[in-house]
Amino acid sequence: MRLIAENLGGERGGETVFSGLGFALEDGQALVVTGPNGSGKSTLLRIIAGLLPKAEGQLRIEGGGDDFPSIAAACHYLGHQNAMKPALSVAENLRFWRDFNGGGDSSVEDALETVGLAGIGHLPFGYLSTGQRRRAAIAKLLVSPRPLWLLDEPTAGLDKASEERFAGLMTRHCAGGGMIVAATHLPLGLEGAKELRMGQAS
């Protein structure tokens, strides 16, 4: 599977944020997007996911087959918000996203254990700390399989140990043939990842 962007341009409220951007990702590759605030990292991720219209250029996924005909179908989008309901328990939240996204029979408990939250699945999501919430949101990536992960500041709020655990998760995802596009300020600990430096905000 290949994710290809050519001459991509994005705008926010009529102002061009970036233009002429291109990259190609193959199975098992990761792209780390860096740059100062306002350089368009989040905009780029949202354009890739299809949540924002692109101003110019081409964006396509090749070799997705019937399962993943479009980028939206092939991707997990982890934005700034965790997309979990505070009133529901962590396990209920995860079970919902697994059923909605079509995760088959992957186990919610296993996913929670992988992110180091074993045993707190019964707690309401609203009771968790910021870092725990982020880890629960990361567990959401694990309960339904998608080849492409779009991560916007994925490690915001995580402690050192969780960051390392998450780096391991990402490495495993890539080793399994997955692709990652991550926007970040902090080093993610991804070995051999391509880097895309976004320009200065104008």
Binding site: S70, A73, C75, Y77, N82, N101, G102
Partner: peptide, 13 residues
């Protein structure tokens, strides 16, 4: 809480 983005992204399924 960001759920709406994911509901919109699920459009293909």
């Amino acid at each position: 809480d960001g759920s709406l983005d994911l509901l919109v992204l699920g459009n293909d399924r």
